[in-house]
Each structure stands twice: as C-alpha cells, then as structure tokens.
C-alpha cells in the first residue's frame, strides 16, 4: 500500500472516530450584511454568505438543517439551507426583528421586534405569523423555559423581563431588572433565570417560580472604568455549574461559578464582545467580538482563549450545530 493511501485511510478513520469535532458555526456580521461560516475542525472561515441588511439574531433550526438570521433593516428573517449555504426562504417577522427563540419542537418561533414593542409568534412549518404579544419598550432578549410553558422577553427601555404564558400568549408577570436588559437564559433545571443588563452592568438572577430577583452578579475588573463593563451574551454549561458572560466594551468574558454566582476569572477576548455559543460537545465556546471583527475560541475545560478567527465587520450573533 502506498504511503499516501495509508494516510488517507487513517485520516478517514480518525474523522469517523472523532465526529465530535465536525461542527459548523454561523456568525452574523451586522455591518457587512454577511454571515461567516466557520469550520470548527480547521477553525477557518469556509464560506461567507451575503444576506439582507443588518443581520443580528441567528439560530439553527432544531433539526439542524437550516439557519435563521434576523435581518432587521429588511424587516424579515432569512432562512439559509445549511447544506447548500444558500438563502431559501424568508419568515414573516414584524418590523426590525433582532433576537428570536424557538420552542423545543422547533415548530413555533418567537421574535422580538424592536420597533413596535411586540413579540411576534411564527408557525415555522407554515411559515406564517400567528400572533403578537404587546410588551415593553424595545423588546430584545428572548428565551423559553425548559418545560416550554413560559416565554421570556426583555425590554430595553422598560427594563423588565416579561413572563409570557406560551399557551395563552398573555403576560403573566413582569420582573424589573437593571437598565437595558439584553439577554435571558434559563438554567436547564429551571431553577434560575439569568438576565444581563448592559447599561446597569449586572446580571440579575431570577427565581422563575417566585418571579422575583433573588440575586445579582456584579463585575469588578481592576484598572477598568465601571461604565465599560456591559454584560450582554450569556452561555451556561448543561450541568448548570459554569457560566460565561460577555462584557461588551470591557473586552472580557467573565467565568462565573453558577452555583455561588461569583466571578472566578476574566478571559481577555477581542473588542466589544457580544454573543456566544457552545459547540454541541461543550468543549469550546465561541464568542463574537464586534469592534475587532473576529471570533474568539475558548477552551471550556481549560478556561482559556485558544484561537482568534477573523470574520466580517461587526460580528454580532453566533450559532453552532453538527455539520449537515
């Protein structure tokens, strides 16, 4: 057997033996109007897809076949086929969609429309708008409780986390948090809901049963002015033990002990770090750095930044799934 073939066979075997690494990350570049596709084996950009204007919120469909990206200035959500990397459809969101979330089955999608104080409900199969919920001023953060019963929307100028019953689509509670709430995330066991406040500079811990704030995570970075610490994106490990919080213009990701709510470490990343996503095996966490136009790769176990990947201008959102 010639050596080259041996190598190829070995490579094929390796690839088969470690499918865990075969992921693909989609990054929305707010200013370039593109989506960068990153291969997580080679950590390189393998494709750049032209999309509509001002792409921000981005997420794989639950089946991993499509990527949905909110293009705010075009007032729609575009659907990219993950196999062909082409735009195949659009969804009828309301005006200026920014962030969205899906139910566990991937059938219903909820979109925050910044410009008209509503959350739009979309049937993903029928590609049809099936309802609206009136919320506070400038809706932004969106997440759904692990049991699917409660949708959380944060409104940036009203400064609240709205609890919306997904069955009745009525607001059932409003929890006041610090200024400009941007992102919401549940612990997998539903014991806590975390909401980041960009201008307030805190992350509120909310008891989802009592629907009240029970604690706050604060940040203190020596040598950095307090106003520069602006928490936005949150990522929590599945075991609920460790959380990562992007601190915007502080250019750092805080590593937080999710049980004690204490910051254990600050990781220096690129400039104006915004949103993040884990690889499905949770080995890596990728964060978008808006001003330095790159993505930092964090080794989750080692809690270290291992790589920086150049993408388009003003990278904003990121979503990662298995390669199609």
């Amino acid at each position: 057997m010639p050596p080259r073939i041996v190598l190829a066979v070995a490579a094929a075997w390796f690839a088969a033996a470690s499918p865990a690494a075969a992921y693909v990350a989609y990054v929305s570049n707010e200013k370039s109007n593109t989506v960068s596709v990153i291969d997580t084996e080679s950590w390189t950009v393998t494709a750049t897809i032209k999309v509509g204007q001002r792409p921000r919120g981005i997420e794989f469909t639950r089946d991993g076949k499509f990527v949905m990206v909110a293009v705010g200035d075009d007032d729609t959500i575009q659907v990219i086929d993950a196999k062909t990397q082409k735009i195949v459809d659009t969804l009828p969101s309301g005006p200026d969609p920014e962030l969205f979330t899906q139910d566990a089955a991937g059938k219903i999608m909820y979109v925050a429309n910044e410009n008209d104080n509503t959350v739009t409900v979309i049937d993903l199969e029928k590609r049809a708008r099936i309802g609206d919920v009136q919320v506070g001023v400038e809706p932004e953060g969106m997440t759904i409780s692990p049991d699917g019963k409660i949708l959380i929307n944060t409104s940036e100028t009203t400064n609240m986390a709205h609890f919306i019953d997904t069955a009745t689509r009525q607001i059932v509670a409003n929890v006041l948090v610090d200024a400009r709430p941007r992102f919401a995330e549940f612990k997998r066991d539903s014991s806590e809901l975390w909401v980041s406040s960009e201008i307030g500079g805190t992350v509120s811990i909310i008891d989802p049963a009592k629907r009240e704030v029970t604690g706050k995570i604060t940040f203190d970075i020596p040598g950095l002015r307090r106003e520069a610490i602006q928490p936005v994106g949150i990522g929590m490990t599945k075991d609920g033990k460790t959380a990562f919080i992007a601190l915007g213009p502080a250019n750092r990701v805080a590593v937080v002990d999710a049980t004690s709510h204490k910051v254990t470490k600050y990781l220096l990343v690129g400039q104006r770090v915004w949103h993040m996503d884990f690889t499905p095996d949770e080995k890596y966490l990728l964060v978008t750095n808006g001003v330095s136009n790159d993505v930092s790769v964090i080794d989750v176990a080692a809690q270290k930044v291992i790589k920086t990947i150049q993408v388009g201008e003003l990278p904003w959102g990121i979503t990662i799934a298995n390669k199609p």
């Binding site: 104080n117 506070g136 001023v137 409104s155 100028t157 009203t158 400064n159 609240m160 709205h162 607001i171 409003n174």
Partner: peptide, 10 residues
C-alpha cells in the same frame, strides 16, 4: 409614552 408602556405593567 415610553413611561406609559412600562407603566401599564406596574
């Protein structure tokens, strides 16, 4: 108007 949007929840 913004205060009233928030105010309706409170």
């Amino acid at each position: 108007e913004d205060n009233n949007t928030t105010g309706k929840f409170l």
